[in-house]
């Protein structure tokens, strides 16, 4: 009896100790991640903003492809329309930043909903084709529509005084990312998450359980577009100018691949992979020019294509060895950290 109580007590102590250890560890990791923001100056603040914006885009694609099982190869259209809408609201209408971001989100959502409505009548591979074609069409029509996008010079998106500092803006981006992460977490933990899992796996089964499959797919499109438009709005104010060339189709393909590399349905994996590919073009030139030996063919233009190159190599490795992406690799660690909690 006594030994039983002792064992019980020890288990309890261990459990409490384990929890404390895990909480400490998470806080420590977050603190390390916050270091560049505190000590890295404006350069790192800008990079962190970009990483957060990419992470929102990754989560947007994850909503569509990971949760609903639908593919979009035209995400640059949603992000781009969000960016131009935000810039238009800020510079032409002179509205506060919040309105611009809202306008971007609504524009992204509306576009995605329209594309979704049309696209839901086709399935699978055809959907990929339709979204690719839509992205390319948007690129050459909407983004070249002078009154809306300011033509070649681009549309300006000035920041308000309070956010003019790069660190303040980075905090805004991180705040929006936190909201998106929270929404994604609640989405998968409640009935919508289960319904989407059913829709993704077998629409007939989903429908016989009372789930409006078309409605959910359309909602996933709209939600994905909303996050993409929001990210576009943030991008507009991050760069303070938006140009059509920021949203080439290669960019959209890189986004899809980076999300798959991160691991569909893995929040942590998607965020990490998105951040990596956001920072790659910014840090790679410095890194390469710091090398003792310079490969002969490197120059500015080459830096531009290295990220797609690297994302593809990573994609092929991931598909061959870890179909669950980065998230699958990290799963033992995340499972230990959240041990006891529900998924």
């Amino acid at each position: 009896m006594a030994t039983a109580t002792m064992t019980f007590a020890r288990v309890k102590v261990q459990r409490r100790f384990g929890l404390a250890l895990r909480v400490t560890l998470v806080i420590a990791l977050l603190a390390v991640a916050a270091l560049p923001l505190v000590y890295g100056g404006d350069v790192w603040a800008q990079r962190i903003s970009r990483a957060a914006i990419y992470a929102i885009i990754g989560l947007s694609i994850n909503t569509l492809t990971g949760h609903a099982g639908q593919i979009s190869l035209g995400h640059q259209a949603f992000v781009g329309i969000g960016a131009f809408a935000a810039a238009f609201t800020a510079s032409r209408l002179g509205a506060p930043l919040g309105f611009g971001l809202a306008a971007g989100a609504v524009a992204g959502m509306a576009t995605a909903a329209v594309v979704g409505m049309v696209a839901l009548r086709v399935t699978g591979l055809y959907l990929a084709l339709v979204t690719l074609a839509f992205g390319l069409t948007a690129e050459t029509t909407i983004f070249n529509w002078r009154e809306f996008t300011g033509g070649g010079a681009g549309a300006f998106a000035p920041r308000p005084d309070i956010l003019s500092g790069d660190r303040a803006f980075a905090l805004l981006c991180l705040g929006v990312l936190a909201l998106v992460l929270y929404a994604d977490w609640r989405l998968v933990s409640t009935k919508a998450g289960r319904a989407l899992a059913a829709v993704r796996n077998d629409e007939r089964i989903a429908a016989t359980l009372g789930i409006d499959t078309t409605g959910y797919k359309l909602a996933a499109f709209s939600l994905s577009g909303l996050a993409a438009g929001l990210a576009g709005g943030l991008f507009a104010h991050w760069n303070q100018v938006v140009q059509a060339m920021d949203f080439e189709f290669q960019v959209a393909l890189v986004w899809v691949l980076m999300t798959v590399v991160g691991g569909l349905r893995s929040r942590l994996g998607v965020v990490l992979a998105s951040a990596f590919f956001a920072l790659l073009p910014l840090t790679l030139p410095n890194f390469l020019s710091g090398l003792p030996w310079q490969p002969p063919f490197l120059n500015e233009a080459v830096y531009h294509v290295l990220p797609p190159f690297i994302v593809v190599v990573m994609l092929l490795l991931v598909l061959r060895f870890f179909p669950g992406g980065l998230g699958q690799l990290l799963r033992p660690a995340t499972r230990w950290l959240t041990k006891g909690g529900r998924r």
């Binding site: 990929a128 290669q250 393909l253 890189v254 294509v305 190159f309 593809v312 598909l319 179909p323």
Partner: peptide, 19 residues
Amino acid sequence: TIMLVALVGVALFTIAIIV
């Protein structure tokens, strides 16, 4: 879908190599 993503990757990869 995975196969399609991989083939999209091939297209990007080829463009990158050419550049």
